[in-house]
């Protein structure tokens, strides 16, 4: 049974999930996308999310936990409204990725996987995000920001803080 009576998701997301389980040869294929979309809406993968997704896909909750703990983008604790993901992998490192990370830490006053007290920003050091030729690069939620300098980071943070998400790479989905 994929349609859930008391869903914890918005009607749009619930409808999307109702559809998602129908498109694959096996509905379990919907699991990874569903977890990611659920996180986009709820902010993290809560126990309630696990329970509902398990029910939608006819899986044990343990199965869902096994899978979600494998993928590094999925988290079981809330993050900030804007999750700043700084790439420090080789190409970014060569072009100042660690300076950007240090700057973010200093500017936001938080460390890796930390969240600012106001809940606006969280910070994460991440592995290669596929922006090597435009390094150093970060992602804020799903938005890429590349060819960065510490000054550009300051501007970005201010814009996010002001609610003007600088839509460089398409609509922010969060």
């Amino acid at each position: 049974m994929s349609e859930i009576a008391n869903t914890i998701f918005s009607p749009e997301t619930a409808a999307r999930f109702d559809h998602l389980v129908t498109i694959y040869p096996l509905k379990r294929s919907a699991l990874v996308p569903m977890l990611l979309y659920a996180q986009d809406e709820i902010g993290y993968i809560s126990d309630a999310v696990i329970a509902e997704i398990a029910q939608r896909i006819d899986l044990l909750e343990l199965d869902v936990r096994n899978v979600l703990s494998y993928y590094s983008m999925l988290r079981t604790k809330p993050a900030g409204k804007y999750n700043v993901q700084v790439c420090t992998n080789i190409s970014c490192m060569l072009r100042g990725g660690y300076e950007i990370l240090d700057h973010c830490k200093h500017k936001l006053g938080i460390g890796h996987k930390g969240t600012t007290p106001d809940g606006v920003f969280s910070l994460e050091e991440v592995e290669c995000i596929g922006a090597c030729c435009w390094a150093p690069a970060i992602q804020i939620n799903y938005d890429f920001h590349d060819d960065l300098t510490t000054e550009k980071v300051d501007v970005l943070f201010q814009m996010y803080r002001d609610g003007l998400s600088p839509n460089t790479t398409g609509k922010d989905v969060k």
Partner: peptide, 28 residues
């Protein structure tokens, strides 16, 4: 054609791990 998203795992780039992931499993 069905489009699909991963959720952060380099290993899923390996073809059989990719299939596992697409089948809703750990990318092993």
């Amino acid at each position: 054609i069905i489009t699909q998203t991963g959720a952060g795992a380099y290993e899923v780039g390996e073809e059989s791990a990719l299939m596992e992931s697409l089948e809703g499993k750990r990318g092993v």
